[in-house]
């Protein structure tokens, strides 16, 4: 992870829903459970969450419905005011911003994509995409040019004069994505952007999304309830339950070392070989002598299946992107993962 300061940094963030959340939180003894808080008449949407998102990183927040993942991301953008704790965005305490500064922040730094698209039904594709630009007062000509640019980027060229209702779900979400990118945000929030789509379209949109991300390199907070989607996209995954983060780690480590029983339940049915990358399973070199052709550390064990079966070496050298040897993979361990332990 790069050494620059985090883009988003949340410290002990609480979001309670109820009659007087701040007061209740101030008087509450620490360590109170979700159920106990509920018995007191409050719902803990976000419960004591501390998390950081680095520049250019894609953090996926995963959890079942009601786990507080959408609430957390709305706290990051201050669509919800938090009840306790602190959220810093680019070194700025967002709770300290007044209305005008908050609007400026959103106009210049943040983009968000919604599960049911949140398109304005009375505006054409072009006008929807240009909407954030219009709100910040850009003139018609510039905003049209910029909107056309992002429309081309998401592959909707030729549809710019259509109304949302004339588009399929996948196309509508492309409009949502284009709109969120129009202002060239640094931070990109995506709230279950593909959940409302059919499985095939979802897959296609995920590929499209990975393509865009490779091109744009934004800082991303992505929400999903689909564990496969999280594994597919994430640099890091935060798994939430009852408003709290159960575990926040890379996909490899979540699959290999689930921190709690709840997380283990998700990973149980997962084909680990498809998730775990060679470098995730590798042991450090520690002076071990390795021989022969190195393998790509970013390949999954599944990708390496044929090689693992055919290669006779006990230990395989692992190389990083630059080709430097970074570790060593025990072949038997990899085969165990691939085929299940004997």
């Amino acid at each position: 992870m790069p050494q620059t300061p985090p883009v988003i940094s949340a410290k002990n963030v609480w979001k309670l829903f109820g009659p007087a959340p701040e007061k209740y939180l101030a008087g509450m003894q620490p360590g109170r459970t979700f159920e106990k808080i509920r018995a007191d008449g409050y719902i803990a949407g976000v419960k004591d969450v501390s998390i950081e998102v680095a520049r250019g990183e894609m953090l996926v927040i995963m959890g079942l419905s009601g786990s507080g993942k959408s609430t957390l991301v709305r706290c990051f953008s201050r669509l919800h005011d938090i009840s306790g704790g602190q959220i810093m965005v680019d070194g700025q305490d967002i709770m300290a911003l007044n209305e005008r500064d908050l609007i400026e922040l959103r106009r210049n730094k943040m983009g968000m994509v919604f599960q049911s698209f949140g398109l304005l039904p009375h505006r054409t594709v072009l006008d929807n995409v240009a909407f954030p630009l219009e709100m910040r007062g850009q003139d018609r000509h510039t905003r049209r040019d910029r909107a056309m640019e992002v429309i081309r980027l998401v592959g909707l060229e030729g549809r710019e004069d259509y109304f949302p209702r004339e588009l399929s779900g996948g196309q509508q979400q492309r409009v949502g994505i284009a709109r969120s990118l129009a202002i060239e945000p640094d931070i990109w929030f995506l709230d279950e952007p593909f959940s409302a789509l059919d499985p095939l379209i979802r897959r296609e949109m995920q590929d499209e999304f990975l393509r865009l991300q490779a091109m744009l390199g934004k800082t991303i907070v992505f929400i999903t309830h689909d564990f496969d989607e999280a594994l597919r996209l994430a640099d890091r995954i935060a798994i939430m339950k009852d408003g709290a983060v159960e575990q926040c780690d890379t996909p490899d480590r979540i699959v290999m070392n689930p921190a709690t029983e709840y997380v283990a339940k998700f990973t149980k049915e997962i084909d680990k070989a498809r998730v775990v990358r060679a470098r995730g399973l590798a042991a450090p070199l520690n002076g071990t002598a390795v021989e022969g052709q190195a393998i790509d550390g970013s390949a999954t064990i599944h990708d390496l299946a044929r090689l693992l079966v055919n290669d006779a070496r006990v230990a395989l050298p692992i190389a990083d992107d630059q080709g430097a040897i970074t570790g060593v993979l025990n072949r038997q361990k990899a085969l165990d993962l691939l085929l299940g332990e004997a």
Binding site: R74, S77, L79, I103, E104, R106, R107, N108, M110, G111, M112, F114, Q115, S116, F117, G118, L119, L120, F131, P132, M135, R136, G176, R179, S180, I183, F189
Partner: peptide, 12 residues
């Protein structure tokens, strides 16, 4: 969601 989309677009 439409309301939130508006807010995130920086509407006054």
């Amino acid at each position: 969601e439409v309301v939130e989309a508006g807010k995130m677009s920086g509407c006054t």
